[in-house]
């Protein structure tokens, strides 16, 4: 469904993403793992069509990502990105204005679940509430691909449980979910595949249950094996 063909992104002389070839299929929840600065965000932004690759390309259903693919790929960035004048309601209306697959009813539903109200101003939200708002407005879209960059950042334990439930609710056979997180444990049971990235390069794209059966290691263990002796 989403295919990365030898994608490279240079920032000056630094390769943020270095020849990543990767094929992601629908019906899976992928955990995208790697330390900060390993290239997860950059890759996602390229798949979202926000950043243009230096070389290589990312295909969505066989076509290079473009304006059309943005209609079907819902991307949530780590950083808050709403206009400062917006209320929670304005954010929903904005999405309703631009995304045909956005459902305001689902949005209201999610807001209730997350204890947010339409009147709240985005400029005064705590980081936890902002994280919830971002995920609510993103998954209120009935997209084919959801790319969530660090959805667990800045939120407490209980909210993380809620967030996991939300992610699972939307993980159907028809959809592809890609969730990056450096809170590896949070994704352990939610993801069924893991994509490990290191210094802009793909390390592996594995089936987690297979890995547990064959190697007897958890995703977190594997993370430590891969990154333990290099960074972090």
């Amino acid at each position: 469904m989403l295919e990365s063909k030898s994608v490279t992104k240079m920032f000056g002389t630094l390769a943020a993403v270095d020849h990543i070839s990767l094929s992601l299929e629908k019906g899976h929840v992928y955990a995208m793992l790697g330390p900060n600065g390993s290239g997860k965000t950059t890759w996602m932004k390229m798949a979202a069509g926000l950043i243009k690759p230096t070389s290589g390309q990312i295909l969505f259903q066989g076509q290079p990502v473009n304006i059309e693919s943005r209609k079907h790929i819902a991307y949530m960035s780590t950083e808050p990105y709403f206009y400062s004048w917006m209320t929670v309601k304005d954010v929903g209306k904005y999405y309703a204005d631009f995304f045909d697959d956005f459902s305001y009813d689902s949005y209201l539903d999610l807001l209730r679940q997350m204890e947010l109200t339409e009147e709240m101003k985005t400029s005064t939200l705590s980081s936890g509430m902002m994280a919830k708002l971002k995920i609510a407005v993103t998954i209120a879209r009935d997209a084919q691909v959801y790319m969530l960059d660090e959805p667990f950042n800045g939120i407490d334990l209980l909210a993380r449980d809620e967030m996991r439930r939300c992610i699972l609710q939307y993980a159907t056979e028809e959809k592809l979910l890609l969730v990056s997180s450096h809170l590896v444990e949070e994704m352990e049971a939610v993801a069924d595949r893991a994509v490990f990235i290191q210094k802009g390069k793909l390390v592996e794209n594995v089936d987690l249950e297979e890995m547990r059966t064959e190697m007897g290691v958890s995703m977190a263990d594997r993370y430590r094996q891969i990154y333990g002796h290099t960074e972090e």
Binding site: R164, L168, A171, T172, E173
Partner: peptide, 9 residues
């Protein structure tokens, strides 16, 4: 959902 696990699992 009940076990908070992946649907494929």
């Amino acid at each position: 959902l009940a076990f908070s696990i992946n649907p494929n699992t």
